[in-house]
């Protein structure tokens, strides 16, 4: 599937997750955040950068790992990205939805 973001066709799946990370940039991240009704602060960006780094290292993401990251604790993670933080954060970060159950 393709979706037009900032005038460019972006590859996404049926849930709206980007499927080609090389198409991601900060401006696209901002647009995806607007769709999720999340105004991004520098704290948000720190978390997004962290999960993108983990993704690049092929480390599977989970709420527990985020909590142990030293970047953000679980409580703040939920307050930064309310309702389904891992799903929302990964969507904005342009990476696939984590398949973790924990």
């Amino acid at each position: 599937m393709e979706k037009i973001i900032l005038g460019k066709p972006i590859e996404v799946n049926e849930e709206g997750y980007m499927t080609n990370f090389s198409q991601w940039n900060k401006e696209i991240g901002e647009e995806l955040a607007k769709e999720a009704h999340i105004p991004l602060s520098s704290r948000h960006w720190q978390v997004i950068n962290y999960i993108q780094d983990e993704y690049k290292k092929e480390v599977p993401l989970s709420i527990r790992k985020i909590g142990k990251s030293g970047v953000v604790d679980i409580k703040e993670f939920y307050s930064l990205f309310p309702t389904a933080p891992l799903k929302t954060a990964t969507k904005i970060a342009g990476i696939p939805k984590p398949a973790s159950c924990i």
Partner: peptide, 10 residues
């Protein structure tokens, strides 16, 4: 796991 999974799905 069910409770935590629920929360992470919103």
């Amino acid at each position: 796991v069910l409770a935590n999974g629920a929360r992470s799905e919103g």
